[in-house]
Design a protein around this nucleic acid. Structure first.
Length: 494
RNA sequence: GCUGCCAUCGUCUAGCGGUUUAGGACAUCGCCCUCUCAAGGCGAAGAUCACGGGUUCAAAUCCCGUUGGCAGCGCCA
């Protein structure tokens, strides 16, 4: 078998979104699995909407996701296939050349109809309940008629001449044979009036010239397949294999859009999702292994990915599962790695000042203590900030239910006062010593050990939940613990 | 409207004619662990395999139809 070459071809008209990442990912995984090449091509033929900014945004997103490309922007070592921006290719006359060839072979023709005229045709067809399409009136223009149009200053588009009869069969890797009736197909535009090729044409020309062997793309493109196949045939080109992936839908079952929550991969990055979590989760939508494995390393995915095991039915994006997977990935890392990830994240979000006074070693220890609770990198901020804030931020609810409640306040006062004295004088902060202290005090005052621990936790952290008291104290240091307990006594019991 | 695609727990999915009292994962609930919150362990609940017909000794699995959902129908990609 020839070497696999696949491509991801985004158009720079917006951020890279979830659906795009999925398409890119499956192409990338397929390439990696087959030891083939993954190519990135920028389809910037939409003059009005394409921007350089979006090109950069997409490239940055691909880099963050670590979906590295063998050929593409910034990496066109192979002159045989470059450039990888369609507008640059257009400047070289690549598309015009094949459009001219199609005209010469009578597979395409100039059309002088205005967009308004074509629109009217389609509307009429809709009313008549027949498939909406261009009626082909410019197909057989005589030379005189063409001269006349030119004299009137009309600028033509080039349309592909679709056969009126017969069927064309797409043999899709995932879906099997899909039949299309040629009669229903439009004489679609291949070169616009401004000389720029349309998607369906540019895509075919580039896939051919770049020797793409497999086209994996979203299901929403399946109706483009027959049009593109006719071009391959007209030009006598060998077709790539096609595989149409089932769509990812929003929670209400409709096409994923902004109202379903985050769309852009950048937003996920900002929230503190890990690249590998997003990748793992997206791989689960539409692809599965025999044993329904859920958590994969990137290497594992590359090894196990199989296009044959991609499903045909659409799937709904589930943010909860992604969140769980993100926590799962974070838990699997050691504190050092999480710290690095956290620093990267905080740099990315531009909030470095939030942690500029935080001691690095203390932060690493704190991360270690709270690791199991981190689901998003941004959680770290609120999980460990109390270690670094000299003034305890007492949570209203915690104070009320643990320190100042009528039934508990006397006990809380005694516990804190005794703790302040005994901890500073008689106990070191080892786990054993602390347990003994708590037990002794509990027996002495006839209360539960938890009634010893809880007030202390609120006193030094301001909250009811946190790491075990022993760990917390160990990391915070004896002096600081005593200081905070004393401040709490002053604040609430004097 | 036309054309195409799809249909297993709320969600992601396993399942390729008998091994299925339909398995796993997320979410939900309970128990255990425990100084709290998590994490972890154990368990529960949750799917008349969209519906209706066939084919077959046997169907979630094959065929046909119906219904529903989604997508496409641009001088956008």
């Amino acid at each position: 078998m020839t070497n696999v070459r696949v491509r991801f071809a985004p158009s720079p008209t917006g951020d890279l979104h979830i659906g795009g990442v999925r398409t890119a990912l499956f192409n990338w995984l397929f390439a990696k699995n087959k030891n083939g090449k993954f190519i990135l091509r920028i389809e910037d033929t939409d003059e009005a909407r394409s921007t350089r900014t979006y090109v950069k945004v997409i490239l940055d997103a691909m880099k963050w996701l670590k979906l590295d490309w063998d050929e593409g922007p910034g990496n066109d070592g192979n002159l045989k296939y470059s450039p990888y921006y369609q507008m640059e290719r257009k400047e070289k006359g690549i598309y015009q050349k094949y459009a001219d060839e199609l005209i010469a072979k009578k597979f395409a023709y100039y059309c002088y109809c205005t967009p308004e005229e074509v629109d009217t045709m389609r509307k009429k067809a809709h009313v008549n309940r027949i498939p909406p399409k261009y009626d082909g009136r410019c197909r057989y223009l005589t030379l005189e008629q063409i001269e006349q149009k030119k004299k009137e200053g009309k600028i033509p588009v080039i349309r592909f001449k679709m056969p009126n009869t017969g069927t064309i069969i797409l043999n899709d890797i995932i879906r099997g044979d899909v039949k299309f009736d040629n009669f229903l197909l439009d004489d679609f535009v291949i070169i616009k009036a401004n000389g720029i090729p349309t998607y369906n044409f540019a895509c075919v020309v580039d896939d051919y010239l770049m020797e793409i062997t497999h086209v994996l793309r979203g299901d929403d493109h399946i109706s483009n397949a027959p049009k593109q196949m006719h071009i391959y045939n007209a030009l006598n080109w060998k077709m790539p294999e096609f595989a149409h992936l089932a769509m990812i839908l929003g929670s209400d079952g409709s096409r994923l859009s902004k109202r379903h929550g985050h769309m852009s991969v950048l937003e996920y990055r900002k929230e503190g999702y890990l690249q590998e979590a997003l990748i793992n989760y997206l791989a689960l939508l539409g692809w599965s292994t025999e044993n329904s494995q859920q958590v994969f390393t990137i290497e594992e995915m590359k090894r196990k990915f199989a296009i044959e095991r991609c499903g045909t039915s659409p799937s709904i994006f589930d943010p909860m599962k992604l969140l769980w997977l993100n926590g799962e990935k974070i838990r699997s890392k050691d504190p050092e790695e999480i710290y690095e990830l956290f620093v990267d994240w905080i740099n990315y979000t531009g909030n470095v000042k939030l942690i500029e006074n935080w001691d690095t070693e203390l932060l690493k220890k704190a991360i270690f203590l709270e690791r199991d609770k981190i689901r998003l990198l941004k959680d770290i901020l609120s999980l460990v900030d109390f270690f670094f804030n000299k003034d305890v931020d007492y949570k209203e609810e915690a104070v009320q239910t643990v320190l100042t409640a009528e039934k508990l306040k006397d006990i809380a006062k005694i516990v804190l006062t005794e703790s302040s004295i005994r901890l500073s004088k008689h106990y070191d902060f080892s786990a054993i010593s602390l347990e003994k202290y708590a037990r002794d005090l509990a027996v002495e005052k006839n209360i539960k050990t938890s009634q010893v621990f809880h007030p202390i936790r609120v006193a030094i952290s301001g909250r009811k939940q946190g790491p075990s008291l022993f760990h917390m104290m160990e990391v915070m240091g004896k002096k600081e613990v005593i200081r905070r307990i004393n401040i709490t006594i002053d604040k609430f019991f004097i």
